[in-house]
Amino acid sequence: MADYSSLTVVQLKDLLTKRNLSVGGLKNELVQRLIKDDEESKGESEVSP
C-alpha cells in the first residue's frame, strides 16, 4: 500500500481524479478515500478468476 500521507493535497487530488473519485475534503479524507479504493480494488482482483 502506498504512503499517501506523504503526498501533497495536489498529488492526492490528481490520484483521485485518475480513479474517478471525489476530490473534495480535507487531506486525511483524501488519503482515506484512496486507501478504501485500494482495498476495494484488491478485493475485486482476488475474486476474479
Rank of each mutant, 00 (worst) to 15 (best):
E46D: 05
S6D: 14
E29H: 06
Q11H: 01
L16V: 04
G25P: 01
V23A: 13
R33P: 00
R33F: 00
K18S: 10
G25A: 02
S5H: 12
K18G: 07
D37I: 03
L34D: 02
K27N: 01
D14A: 11
L26I: 07
P49S: 02
A2L: 15
E39Y: 06
D37A: 13
E39W: 10
E39R: 14
E40S: 14
E39D: 09
T8P: 08
V47K: 13
S6N: 05
A2G: 14
S6W: 03
L7P: 01
P49W: 00
S5V: 06
K36E: 14
T8D: 07
E44G: 11
K36Q: 10
E44T: 12
V10P: 15
Y4S: 02
L34P: 02
T17K: 12
L7H: 05
E29M: 02
M1C: 00
T8K: 03
V9E: 13
V47C: 10
D38A: 02
S41M: 06
E44F: 10
L12C: 04
G24D: 15
D14C: 06
Q11G: 06
P49C: 15
S45D: 12
Y4I: 06
T8C: 05
V31E: 08
L30S: 04
E44S: 13
N28E: 06
R19V: 00
E39M: 14
S22N: 11
D37P: 01
S48R: 14
L16H: 00
N20E: 10
Y4Q: 00
V31D: 01
R33N: 00
K18A: 12
L7S: 04
R19D: 00
G43L: 12
V31S: 04
L34M: 07
T17M: 14
L15P: 01
K18I: 05
V9S: 07
K36C: 08
S41A: 11
K42H: 09
S48Y: 11
L12I: 09
S41D: 09
L7W: 10
L30I: 03
K36P: 00
G25V: 01
S6T: 07
L16E: 02
E44Q: 13
V9I: 10
G43N: 13
E46L: 07
V9Y: 08
D3P: 09
G25Y: 00
T8W: 00
S48W: 10
K27T: 04
G24W: 13
E40C: 15
R19L: 00
G24F: 14
L7F: 14
L26V: 14
L12Q: 04
K18W: 05
E29V: 07
G25F: 01
V47N: 15
L15F: 03
T8E: 01
D3I: 06
G24H: 13
V10H: 15
S41V: 11
L26F: 10
E39L: 12
K27H: 06
L12F: 00
L34V: 04
D37M: 03
D14M: 12
L7Q: 07
M1R: 05
L16S: 03
V31T: 06
D14S: 09
L34Q: 02
L15V: 06
T8F: 00
T8M: 04
D38I: 08
A2C: 14
L30A: 02
E44W: 08
S41H: 15
Y4M: 03
S45P: 15
L30C: 03
R19K: 04
E40Y: 08
Q11S: 05
K36A: 13
K18D: 11
D37H: 07
E39A: 13
G25R: 01
Y4D: 02
V23G: 10
S6K: 07
E46P: 13
V47F: 08
L21V: 04
K42I: 09
E46S: 10
L7K: 07
P49G: 10
L26H: 15
L15E: 09
D14Y: 07
L21D: 06
L34A: 03
T8V: 01
K13Q: 10
K42F: 11
D3L: 08
E44N: 14
L30N: 02
L12T: 01
Q11D: 08
L30T: 04
G43M: 12
L15N: 04
D37T: 04
Q11R: 05
K13F: 03
L16M: 04
G43V: 13
T17S: 14
S45W: 06
V47H: 06
V47A: 11
V31A: 07
S22W: 07
D38W: 02
S48C: 09
S6G: 08
D14H: 13
D14P: 00
T8H: 05
L16C: 15
V23D: 12
K42Q: 13
K42D: 05
G24L: 14
E44I: 12
E29R: 02
R33Y: 00
R19S: 02
E40F: 06
V23T: 15
E40P: 13
V9Q: 07
V47Q: 12
I35F: 05
K13G: 03
E46F: 01
D37C: 05
L15Q: 09
E44L: 11
L7V: 01
E44M: 15
K27L: 01
Q11I: 02
S22R: 06
K27M: 03
L21N: 04
N28V: 08
K36F: 04
L30V: 02
S45Q: 11
D3Q: 05
N28S: 15
Q11M: 09
S45K: 10
G43Y: 13
S22M: 13
D14K: 10
V23K: 07
S48M: 07
G25W: 00
L15H: 03
R33E: 02
Y4P: 00
S45L: 12
Q11K: 08
E40A: 13
N20G: 13
Q11T: 05
G25T: 02
R33S: 03
V31R: 07
E29T: 09
S41N: 14
K13M: 09
E46Q: 06
K36R: 12
I35D: 03
S48P: 11
V10C: 15
V9H: 09
N20S: 08
E46I: 12
S5I: 03
K36Y: 03
Q32E: 07
K13H: 06
Q11E: 13
L30H: 03
Y4F: 05
S22I: 11
R33K: 02
Q32C: 12
T17D: 07
S5T: 07
D3M: 15
L34T: 02
K36L: 09
E40W: 09
S48I: 07
K42G: 10
N20R: 11
E29W: 00
V47S: 14
Q32K: 14
A2E: 15
S48V: 12
K18N: 09
D3V: 08
K42C: 06
N28H: 13
K42V: 09
D3H: 08
G43P: 10
L7N: 03
E44V: 11
S48T: 13
K18E: 11
L21H: 03
L26D: 14
V9M: 13
L7G: 02
L16K: 02
K13I: 05
L15R: 05
G43T: 12
I35W: 09
